[in-house]
Amino acid sequence: MARVAFIGLGNMGGGMAANLAKGGHDVRAFDLSADALERAREKGCSAVASAAEAVADADAVVTMLPAGKHVRDVYDASVFGKAPTDAILIDCSTIDVTTAREESAKARAQGYEMVDAPVSGGIAAADAGTLTFMVGGSEDGFAKARPYLELMGKAVIHAGGPGAGQAAKICNNMLLGASMIATCETFVLAEKLGLDLQTFFNISSQASGQNWSMTSYCPVPGVGPETPADRNYEGGFATALMLKDLRLAMEAAESVDAYTPMGSHAEELYTRFLELGGDGKDFSAIIRMIAEKAD
């Protein structure tokens, strides 16, 4: 049994921390939300009063935080110099590549191994322990982090050096955002052309247009497997989070002079959808905006 500090118990972090506790580890959890701490306690974690208290004597530190600023603040103020230097530092937040590399360099300078390990899979996968982790860091860091990540995910993939996990995550989610929009457009067009949408799904899911947004996360209620569309687009992956990832992708593209017209247009459309009130809905709910524009 290892001592694991887990900082950040939101929609994703809560389930992840619970799976580490279920795996037999002594999980010392911290979050600014008292409700989140109570839920973590109910799922086998020990609630502590601060991030610094969580990391004391830890074998591993896992963070799941909203943005790069929060990662910098937590690591600089409460992890570096507070956690033992032989603890593996695992940041599962989705943040910009530059911050991930900077924090990794600070960790290395102080004798720590640190990996960036953003996730794919959403809340249900976090609760079920079936996330996919894209890991950036050294081979030694990856080897130390892997046993903890495997308790929280179905796939743990070493993407490369520091920042590579974040690069893989934002590239993946840029593709996801753009493909969801195309999938939504396609269903709207199919309906206007008089096609039965379940029939169209049966065809396209086995033809060259097949993609994850259609076959695993269909944006049409009652078509394909159960998705947030069947729950009035509640739960799942919030539009605000998709837009955050698209903006990170656009920042990264600009920094390396990459031409990403589809990613840029996806960012514009999700910005419009959020401004129209879609921020609290799953990102697949953008089909509603597309259908309304088509009317």
Rank of each mutant, 00 (worst) to 15 (best):
Y233N: 06
L197D: 01
S205W: 01
S208F: 12
E191R: 15
L193F: 15
I181W: 10
G165H: 11
A164Q: 10
A229E: 01
T183G: 08
C184A: 15
L193M: 15
N172A: 11
K192G: 14
A167C: 12
L176Y: 02
T227K: 03
N202D: 15
Y217W: 12
L195E: 00
G209F: 02
T227Y: 01
A190P: 08
A178V: 11
C184L: 06
N173C: 05
G222S: 09
G194H: 06
G160P: 05
P162E: 02
S179K: 00
L197G: 00
K192F: 02
T227H: 00
A168P: 04
V220G: 04
Y233I: 02
P228M: 02
W212G: 00
L197A: 03
S204C: 13
L176A: 15
G209T: 06
L197S: 08
N232D: 15
A164R: 09
Q206D: 08
C184N: 11
I203N: 06
G161N: 08
E191Y: 02
L197T: 11
Y217K: 13
A168I: 13
G209L: 05
N202P: 04
E226G: 00
L193S: 13
Q198N: 12
V223A: 10
K192W: 00
G224R: 04
G224W: 01
L176S: 14
S213W: 00
T183A: 12
T199Q: 14
P219F: 03
Q210E: 13
S216T: 12
V220W: 06
N211L: 07
Y217Q: 06
Q206Y: 10
F187P: 03
G165T: 11
G222I: 05
D196P: 03
L176T: 14
L189R: 05
T227L: 02
P162L: 11
V223H: 10
G194S: 10
Q166T: 12
A190H: 04
I203C: 13
T186Y: 00
Q198I: 04
L175N: 03
G224N: 07
V223N: 05
L193N: 08
S204H: 12
Y217P: 00
E191T: 04
L175A: 14
A167S: 15
N232E: 14
